[in-house]
Write a protein that binds this DNA or RNA. Structure first.
Lengths: 134, 134
DNA sequence: TTATTATATGAACATATAATAATATGTTTT
DNA sequence: AAAACATATTATTATATGTTCATATAATAA
């Protein structure tokens, strides 16, 4: 009843503008509704994606891997990774903003390290995963 | 000796072309060398980054969150996420290629689900992390 | 067979992102 | 104070990525 009403609604919309909305029919209404109620808020989806996005770059993974071995300064990272200082600083800024690394200053030198063991655990899960896929 | 030779070499290059190489001085040679020996191969860095990259998108996170609740077909996902079917299929293809989701066909309908508990653990670690940051 | 439905794919476009060059900032040393 | 140095930032450019449209494929029903 509610279902056929909605179907009518959908085909109406489809006539107006096929491109505007998802005009698919629901196949498993019950599942869709129960999953919908388990979905988080928009902001949480974006935060979660943004968190993982940081790990999704070769340069940042290299930096994180290095920092998982030892605290390092920017200059050391440049040399290790054979990269321009500004490129390294850019990535460190992102890592800093996401609270994935922390830093301490000692005179002119800034030392970076992993923010907490949480980050190390995420890294290790990823390492495990790709090991298994080989 | 080797060191001063290298320095001379670097400043020479710097004169020719400042942009060519990392011209920074090494501050902590010992650390750089020991970390260098702990770094993985290039391919492993890329694989790890590619793995996390998949989680670094709102749409894919939404799909994964949904699939962590229940197996779903493409059509259901379209309705749940209010997205075009082709957009959903494109993302499912990426998830499939990375072996993050698996699928089974039942007639015309294709059901997707998380590939293994590994994926669920990665997701949950991420969820925990952003919870703590709030 | 043809029609219908569910999903997949290719190409194009718009946006996001990483690296670079050039420059600025902040710290120490002289 | 000025010079030297380590790091940060801004603007730009090249590349990567997500969504859309159009179309293709696969399975079922008539």
């Amino acid at each position: 009843m509610a279902q056929s009403a909605e179907k009518a609604d959908i085909s109406e919309k489809a006539q107006e503008n096929t491109a505007e909305l998802c005009t698919e029919r629901i196949i498993h209404r019950g599942i869709v509704e129960s999953v919908r109620s388990a979905m988080p808020e928009e902001a949480e989806l974006y935060d979660l994606a943004d968190f993982f996005k940081i790990f999704g770059d070769r340069t940042r993974i290299a930096i994180l891997w290095a920092l998982s071995e030892s605290e390092m300064c920017v200059c050391d990272l440049c040399m290790l990774l054979d990269m321009k200082q500004s490129a390294v600083s850019h990535q460190l800024k992102l890592l800093k903003q996401s609270r994935i690394v922390k830093y301490r200053r000692e005179g002119k030198v800034v030392y970076y390290s992993l923010d907490d063991d949480h980050i190390r655990r995420v890294l290790n899960l990823g390492r495990q995963h790709i090991q298994e896929q080989r």
